[in-house]
């Protein structure tokens, strides 16, 4: 009980821990593994006309209606190539479950605190807000996503 609430609260800067990883375009992301509720293949989606464009639609997750956010659009990346269906990474947030549409799901990784870096200052402002930490893995960089901010679509940030 106590651990769960701790996980839901503002994320303290974690210097190490387990991250569920995924790819969006050529970027390699991770979210705190405790936040991830489940991972699903692409689901049938109901479009929401007039919604912010990062919202891909609504999915039915065993009777629960979950909003799906397209991570490419959220991060301001070019759209997915035709025929490539995204995966649903369902994360728990303060406001219930939200699905992040990502290109591909990676492994759960244990990272070493020693490889931690702050995200570079010259990162695009939109992405800078969402990326909390950077870990230097052997062959690539792991970007840690701030899930709460990702699902918080304040109108000016939404576009």
């Amino acid at each position: 009980m106590a651990t769960k609430t701790a996980a839901m609260r503002p994320e303290p800067v974690q210097t190490c821990g387990q991250f569920a990883t995924f790819f969006v375009a050529d970027l390699f992301f991770g979210v705190d593994v405790l936040r991830v509720q489940e991972v699903l293949r692409f689901q049938q989606m109901t479009r929401v006309p007039q919604a912010p464009e990062v919202i891909e639609g609504l999915i039915n997750l065993r009777g629960q209606i979950v909003t799906a956010i397209d991570m490419r659009r959220r991060l301001g990346l070019p759209p997915r190539a035709g025929g490539q269906t995204p995966m649903n990474m369902v994360v728990r947030t303060e406001d219930g479950a939200v699905s992040l549409l990502v290109d591909e799901i990676g492994d759960v990784l244990d990272v070493d605190a020693a490889t931690h870096e702050q995200p570079p200052e010259n990162l695009d402002r939109g992405a800078r807000e969402l990326i909390r930490d950077v870990y230097k893995l052997k062959d690539r960089l792991l970007l840690i996503l701030d899930a709460e901010r990702t699902v918080d679509l304040v109108p000016e940030r939404a576009a």
């Binding site: 929401v48 007039q50 919604a51 912010p52 919202i55 406001d95 679509l153 109108p155």
Partner: peptide, 8 residues
């Protein structure tokens, strides 16, 4: 609806 859609 989720909070992302509350404004609609």
């Amino acid at each position: 609806l989720g909070k992302q859609l509350k404004g609609l």
